[in-house]
Every structure is written in structure tokens, then in C-alpha cells.
Nucleic acid binder design. Structure first.
Lengths: 353, 353
DNA sequence: GTGAAAGCGCTAACAC
DNA sequence: GTGTTAGCGCTTTCAC
């Protein structure tokens, strides 16, 4: 930190040119002689010169990173979730290859922080941003980001802000289809194990479920909607509690965990067996492998597919090739017959409580 | 992106003060009257003003983020690895609580990139940096970071650059202790399943192993050192291949996966049983739970503990309370008797190949 | 093909 | 307690 780093002027001085010419070389612009260009390149290497992102952003307009932020803590939504892993790779593909810096700001959701997850946007660090998280219904940051004007993509929608730039799957419809499927097969008492209870995706799940019941003239029992979370890792326990009630013969697993073990284990503890004395619809993010082969149906949520298209559009928006906001909501699909392949990845994500 | 954001001058204008006074308020400095201070605060909120990190860093000297970078791709070292998850939390504790922004630059190791993982350092985005990765023996970036002068901490050491600021466990000694333990119990043919074959931690493992053999006058057989990697997820296969050779009666599992399943499964396929017809020493990052209860001994690597202390020192260095470099290398400990508790977290990290 | 000058938003130094 | 000035490193504009 003691000795000063070389600036564009140091390079210019050595090369006997003006700073402007060096700037042209760095940015690959025309209007520099080939000989001069080569000479300057050499001096840049020799001096170990690198442009200062801050100064660049200040003058040139565009800040230095494509940002990723989340509105939940790691406990609520673990970074180990396969979807998040996949997303990082996808961002590389879309942005990294073009030389953009992808920066994940991990600070906003530090416990005890004010949780202003837009911070790096307000402070002009990000030139575009991806928001990964279940949005809370009371969220007020999204509208601010929207007004701020940089290209952004939320991987979830928000009831209270429908104009939000987002790419997501239709969870409401997913819950509706799953529930209706079980109703059509004659079940009267259908339970739901859902994730994200206090966030928009959880609300969407409940809404779809209730809509299906209502259509069929069934009276909802609120105790049959149970919420799991990534923190307490209590899926098996929840399943157990629901199934101990012998009346329950249908179960929608929209826990977002793709966790076959918890379902089997929860059922076992309740003295019941999947596919024998109750039927399930299990949600999955993958359309080519079965989470739980003994389920009656799988509901595929094209979350990755929606995100992939959203990212492409975000990149185009960032390049100035289109305007925002992005509006993608993919419909889920219900499959009664699934491939024989059981998921190869370990689906006992969290172990027992 | 169209309408200009408010600057410090806009605030100053509205408040009828100079920009400098506003700057004093933002930075919580003395020398501003209480009334003025309140008035300015109000206007800042009203205008939705936020300081521009770039400009700030440019003038004030210190860039805007504590950085995290890695020198390997996600495939080589998955972010889902429990240690990485733990580390992020720890960084929150040490830096996030003080209001520092923690930024993980995910771009350098994008496939096809030049993999200059120091990029965000050279470009003055980071005021301090944590390097998480198995370092490659040919690495030349670390010395450059060292010379660059910002506080940094590598979570691994490097033969070729011993002055590196680092916090790590002593893998060489770990391998030595593990191997010697098996030799002392009478084994003559001892195999090793190691991770990070082509990186420094893998080299350290091999060195410790060979040192123990040599001391005992045993002739090493290079086929007995096998390397696994996070990408191919072939642990069970490797274990199988090693144990098919009936002569092998001792096995050091330093695969860094804490994966009981692979060991059992690999042995089963080879028609052998852990603790019956061969003995193992299993490496673990946790000192209060057993990875594999039937192992003869566990070697505990205080990697987390070293990193935790390293981060504290890094924070102090960053605050100017001490100088670098950091030099922490914790000794591992071998336990013959382990707690009854088997690890609660799923230890079948990767599923079968 | 190249250079001079201005200014992005901010803060440190010094004036009053 | 507050204002003025200069300048951080860079890119843009406009000259030549």
C-alpha cells in the first residue's frame, strides 16, 4: 500500500506520448499508429500498469461489475443449493466470457446489518444486477432498483410490484396443477409441504393450492399447509406430522429440496408408505430424472430455463440492445410417467434434524 | 440510466452549504453543527443520495470491497464445500459487521478466461483480499499480490513462495502422522487417497506420506498414491481399485471430502470391510464428530481454526493495526478414539459416479 | 495520428 | 464550524 501504482501518466511519460494515446490503446480504439501502439503495449506490461476501475467508472460512466445480490441470509437460502451453483456457471457463460467482472456482494445480508441489499447499486458499483432470493412481500428495495435505472433481473416476482424485471416459474400454477391432479384422483384431504413460507414463492404456492380446493368445493384446513425451511432442515419431521393424520391421502411436496429421503423417512415414521397408502406430487427442477420414483406425478418447474432466458435478455439490456424490464414467467408441467433414471445427485440434501 | 443521480453537490446546493460539509456528514466527521448535520441528513434521505464508491476510492485512497477470489474453477473446488460455506459466514462476522462490503469476484476462473485471478486487485477494486483455493505449484499471481501491497490472506501455502501471507493446516505433517500411525500398527502396504493432486496441498500430502515410509525403511509404490477430484467424483472407484489389491492393509483417506459412503462402498465392491481386513486413518475438518466410526484413527486438520485466526489478523492488518504478512500453520492432531456422534451432515457429498 | 484541456464525484489540506 | 481549492486516474471533446 506504500508505493504508488503506475498510472496512465507514467505509461505516457515513458512512451513519450500523451495520456490520451495510452487510453486509446487500453480501450482498443483506433487512431493510434501501429508502432506507437506496440511500444505502449510493451511499456504497460513492463510497468505492470492496470487501469483503475474507480476512475474509469467515474469518468466513463459505467461501473465495474455485474452484480449478484441476495435478500436472504445464507441460512435461509444456502449457497450450496444446486440452483445457485448452476446460476453462477450460467452467469459465467453469459457475462464472464465477455470479460465482465461478476461480483457477488455477500455483505448486505450479514446478520445485524440493515439488509439494504441494493447498496452496491446505489453506490454505483454495479452496472447490472441479478437478484437471487425469495422476495419478501413487504420488499421496498426492488421498486427502488427499478427506478434507479440499471439493467436488473430478479429471479422471483412480487405481487406488490408486478412491473418488476423478473424471470421465474409460475409457482401458483404449479401448486394449482399439483393439487388438482390429486383431487382428480379422488383425494379429499390433501396436504402441502412448502418452502419459503413468508416470501412470495410461498404465498404463490398457497394461493394455487387454495384455488384448486375451492374449485372442487373442498374446504381447506390450514393445518395441512406446512412450511419447511432450509435453516431448521425439518422436512422429514413435517412430513411425519402430516401423515400421522390418517385422513391425509394426498401430499404435494413443494419444498424445493428435491429431497426423496425426507419424504420416505417422514412417511416411515408415520407408519405409511409413499405410493401405497398415500399419493404424492413432487416438485422438481429437472425434467430428465425422477426425484422420487414412487411418486404419482412430478411437477417440473422450469426455473433454470426461465433464469437462462432472463440472463440472456439481461445481457442484451446491458449491452444496450434492448430495453427493460424483463418479463418471463414459465409454466410448469406435470408428468405422470417419469424417466427410469433416479436423480444421480444426492437428494438427501440436509440430513436428518 | 437516463436521469443523473444526485451528487454531493446537489445535496450541498439544497442545504446551502459547501460540498465539503456534506462530505463531513457522510463520513461522520466532527466539525459540523448539530442543526446543519440534521438538516443535511434530511436532504440526503430526501434526495436518495448515496456516495459513489468509485469517486470515493479515487480520492480517499481505499477501494470499496474486501475481496474473495479463487484460483480454481467451481468444478475443481465446488462452492458447496462445507468449508467454503463456513468461510463466507466467518467473513461476515469479521468484516461484514463493520460495514465492509465483501465481494466475491466470480469471473477470473470462467472457463476460457486468462484466469488472472488478481484482476480485481490490480484494478484497485479490493482493499484487502482472501484467496481460497488449492494453489498451483507454478502460481505466479501470489507474489504479485504480495508485492502489490494490499492486505491479503491465502488459505494455502506455496513451496515456491514461503513468505506468502497464509493461514493453513500442516498437510505434510498430517500425512506423515497418518502414515506413521499405520506403520506403527504393523502395516507394510499403505495406500493414500488424496485430493488436489496437482496443487500444493496434494504435494504436501505426498511428501509427508513418503517421509514416513522412508523413515520406516519401506519402499514406496507409486501406484498406491491415488488422486481423486471433485470433478469426476470418483472416490468410491479409487478406493475400490486400491483395495482390490489384497496386499494393501492400510489406507489414508486425505480426500478432503469427509465422505464415509465412498470408503464403505469402495471397500464393499472390493469385497473388503473397513476395520476388519484393513485399517484406515480418515481426515476430518471437525474435531467433535466422526466421519467414519469404524476407522482406526481420525486426523483432525484445524483448517477452520487457522482460517478464523487468519481472518482476524487480516482484519487488523486492514485496519492498520498490524503489518503483514500473516503466517499461520496449525498442526493436525490424530485421535484414536472419537466421539460416538457420527457426523450429522450428509457425508455422501457427491453421490456415486 | 496525436495532444491539450476539462471534468466525472469525492475528500484532504488549508483558509477563515 | 464552514468554505475554497486542488487533485485522485481516467475518458471525452475538440483542436491540430
Amino acid at each position: 500500500m506504500n508505493k504508488k501504482r503506475p498510472t496512465i501518466y507514467d505509461v505516457a511519460l515513458r512512451a513519450n506520448v500523451s495520456a490520451n494515446t495510452v487510453s486509446r490503446v487500453i480501450n482498443g480504439k483506433t487512431g493510434v499508429g501501429d508502432a506507437t501502439r506496440e511500444r505502449i503495449r510493451g511499456i504497460i506490461d513492463e510497468l505492470g500498469y492496470f487501469p483503475n476501475v474507480g476512475a474509469r467508472a467515474l469518468r466513463g460512466g459505467r461501473p465495474g461489475c455485474i452484480g449478484v445480490v441476495r435478500s436472504s441470509t445464507t441460512e435461509d437460502v444456502p449457497l450450496s443449493h444446486p440452483f445457485i451453483q448452476w446460476l453462477f456457471g450460467e452467469m459465467h457463460r453469459v457475462f464472464g466470457a465477455r470479460g465482465e467482472r461478476i461480483c457477488f456482494d455477500m455483505s448486505p445480508c450479514a446478520p445485524g446489518n440493515g439488509t439494504d441489499y441494493g447498496r452496491s447499486i446505489w453506490e454505483s458499483l454495479f452496472s447490472a444486477c441479478v437478484l437471487l432470493n425469495p422476495l419478501s412481500p413487504g420488499d421496498t428495495t426492488i421498486p427502488r432498483i427499478h427506478r434507479f435505472g440499471i439493467p436488473y433481473l430478479s429471479l422471483g416476482r412480487l405481487d406488490s410490484f408486478p412491473e418488476c424485471s423478473s424471470a421465474t416459474a409460475d409457482y401458483e400454477r404449479g401448486a394449482y396443477l399439483s393439487t388438482k391432479y390429486l383431487i382428480d384422483r379422488g383425494h379429499q384431504s390433501i396436504a402441502m409441504v412448502r418452502a419459503f413460507a413468508n416470501a412470495q414463492p410461498g404465498i404463490d404456492r398457497e394461493r394455487g393450492y387454495l384455488r384448486a380446493l375451492e374449485e372442487a368445493g373442498l374446504v381447506p384446513d390450514e393445518r395441512l399447509i406446512q412450511s419447511v425451511n432450509f435453516k431448521t432442515r425439518d422436512n422429514a419431521l413435517i412430513v411425519h406430522r402430516l401423515l400421522v393424520d390418517g385422513k391425509v391421502t394426498g401430499l404435494v411436496d413443494c419444498s424445493a429440496t428435491e429431497d426423496a429421503w425426507s419424504m420416505r423417512e417422514g412417511a416411515r415414521r408415520a407408519g405409511r408408505t409413499v405410493g401405497k397408502d398415500f399419493e404424492t406430487v413432487v416438485w422438481t427442477y429437472s425434467n430428465d430424472a425422477a426425484v422420487l420414483p414412487e411418486a404419482s406425478a412430478h411437477l417440473w418447474l422450469p426455473v433454470r430455463e426461465a433464469a437462462a432466458e432472463g440472463l440472456e435478455l439481461l445481457a442484451a439490456w446491458h449491452r444496450g440492445e434492448r430495453e427493460g424490464p424483463i418479463d418471463i414467467q414459465y409454466a410448469p408441467a406435470l408428468f405422470e410417467s417419469m424417466p427410469d433414471v433416479e436423480m444421480t445427485q444426492s437428494k438427501r440434501l440436509f440430513g436428518q434434524p
